[in-house]
Nucleic acid binder design. Sequence first.
DNA 1: AGGCGTACCTGAGGGC
DNA 2: TGCCCTCAGGTACGCC
Length: 271
Amino acid sequence: MPELPEVETIARGLANAVVGKTVDSVEVLRPTVVGPEPQRFAAELSGDRIVAVGRRAKFVVMALASGRSLVVHLRMTGRLIVQPAPAANLEPYTNVALSFTDDSRLCFADVRRFGRMRLVEPEGEWAAELGPEPLSSEFSLERFSSILVGRRTPIKAFLLDQRRVAGLGNIYACEALWDARIRPTRPAGALTGPARKRLHRAIIEVLRRAIEMRGTSVDDYVDADGLRGGFQNVLEVYGRDGLACSRCAAPIIRTVLAQRGTWWCRACQRG
DNA sequence: AGGCGTACCTGAGGGC
DNA sequence: TGCCCTCAGGTACGCC
């Protein structure tokens, strides 16, 4: 489900809703979601206070007064929903519920149970493998070019690899490649200088615009307040097979690449 | 090292 | 209606 723009939107909503709140109790309904020691997880989190909420790659990161962080990955269908009022029913498919001392609640809900929630130590290495943040200054054209060198994997698969660039998923990889007029199957290391420059710019622009529109709700993504995003209304290729390309009017096609549906325009994505 | 296939889960939607 | 198949915004793991 959520890629960088959706996780960013969720994190911003949570920052408004839960910063400063103290965890009163933790209910773990699906133990596998929080790791090998669910009781310890609940005990250590109880009594701690959320001091900040941010994002790294597709992880929501809640910094705690203890110095630890509560890190959440939503995978495909995970949701973080704030329930401001006391005594409401838990959000459907809640796997973990944090109750705060003011009686509000944070539900980590996830139908498919792929999502994960972990308590990590300040010096923890949980993010060590992640590539650069595409919206940070470290993601320069030079840096991007250097990580492409010698890669023979298709550029689409490369963009989905979180160790290369962090935060892109299937929707925004497809959209950025369309924007840059690059064929998804092109070996990453074979992009020309101009193509690298177009793709670098497209990644940044697509992500920025999607954040402005509060993410993409293709199916069931909602933010921390339960609201849908708006970017699904301006998608150029994702999920649009058979429809006309807005740039050249040829039909958008769907192929499968690295086991993922891939939407693109064969006529004008030739770089 | 790196790339590929499979596993993890449930639900929605299409074809018959 | 209902069964059966395919597909889904992601990543971990094992295998070559």
